[in-house]
């Protein structure tokens, strides 16, 4: 299986919000779409899923135009939604039935994900029998969406996206609005999906999350891909130019002597910019020669955050 996005274009009047965007997912894994607000990430996702007509280009799944009616697709939209007044069980069964699942299959999947996401108590009345006095037991129906917290609603929405065991999963800002505990729970689920060999497209502003999951990325700026490819290769192409040094004495004279750029000076140490590994090694030799007590020395590639700020921040400044 493979997903190919070829030269898609979307215009609103004179404004081009997606401009000849192409990328390919040949293997299962997570593909990240990054960009500032309004960069065209959600529009791209909606075009991929056929919800928005493009003004050019195509989206192929296994070489054929992607039709969500034919391909099993799961979608966690940026604008989360559930029917506020309907019971959660009714809604999940409905979403599953729309994916052509049998009632029994749907119930099995709901039970599986409810346990994983720790929302069983909201879905199963049998486990929620309360004593209503005089020895009588009152059956509590499955909860309605508007009775749940935002985090729990988000879990139900993730269940709705995954219930049909989709081949292609699209997640638009999956971790936004979640507390750290629920964010970890969601990450576990994403890891499980990766292990199961799913194709996942993820849009997020949380760079550490992208670095944790994604093998390939596209950074969008004003609808155009400004950085694209394998994340490790992108980082390598920048070279190891970030140097962190922590010492027991001031490094200012040595930094001046080598004419290095200080990105940030914190009580913890110095974040320096070097031209490459050779300059970093020369700086280390200088510190050793001058017998500076070094506590920590780290030469590393730029983080995704730094690449993102450099590519998108500078252009929008």
């Amino acid at each position: 299986m493979a997903l190919q996005v070829q030269e898609i274009i979307k215009k609103y009047g004179e404004n081009t919000v997606v401009d000849r965007l192409s990328f390919t997912m040949e293997n299962p894994g997570v593909y990240a779409l990054l960009g500032r607000n309004g960069a065209g990430k959600t529009t791209t996702i909606r075009i991929i899923l056929g919800m928005l007509a493009s003004d050019g280009g195509s989206v192929l799944w296994n070489g054929k135009p992607l039709d969500p009616m034919q391909v099993n697709v799961g979608y966690l939209a940026e604008e989360r939604g559930l029917y506020p007044k309907y019971t959660l069980m009714d809604q999940l069964l409905y979403f599953a039935r729309l994916k052509n699942m049998s009632a029994q299959e749907a119930k099995q999947q709901i039970a599986y994900w409810a346990k994983k996401l720790e929302v069983e108590e909201y879905l199963y009345p049998a486990t929620s029998v309360k004593n209503s006095g005089a020895g009588k037991k009152k059956k509590i129906p499955s909860r309605k969406a508007d009775e749940l917290s935002k985090g729990n609603q988000q879990k139900i929405q993730l269940m709705a996206a995954l219930i049909s065991d989709p081949d292609l999963i699209v997640m638009d800002e999956p971790l936004s609005g979640l507390d750290p505990v629920n964010a970890d729970l969601f990450k576990q689920i994403i890891h499980e999906c990766i292990e199961r060999g799913k194709y996942i497209i993820m849009s997020s502003h949380q760079m550490p999350t992208i670095e944790e999951f994604c093998s390939d990325i596209t950074i969008l700026n004003r609808g155009q891909a400004v950085v694209q490819g394998n994340l490790n290769e992108i980082k390598k192409s920048y070279g190891r130019v970030n140097l962190f040094v922590k010492a027991d004495s001031s490094l200012d004279p040595y930094i001046s002597k080598m004419n290095l750029t200080v990105q940030e000076k914190t009580p913890d140490g110095y974040h320096l910019k070097v031209t490459g590994e050779a300059q970093a090694a020369e700086f280390l030799r200088l510190l050793v020669t001058e017998q500076v007590p070094i506590v920590k020395y780290e030469l590393r590639e730029p983080s995704l955050h730094e690449i993102f700020v450099e590519k998108v921040g500078a252009d929008n400044a």
């Binding site: 899923l49 969500p68 979608y75 939209a77 939604g81 559930l82 506020p84 729309l98 994916k99 709705a160």
Partner: peptide, 17 residues
């Protein structure tokens, strides 16, 4: 309008037109 109002419509649109 209920689907649009409750924002369920995007989820539905992956299954129906």
């Amino acid at each position: 309008v209920m689907e649009k109002s409750s924002k369920v419509v995007e989820l539905l649109m992956t299954s129906v037109k």
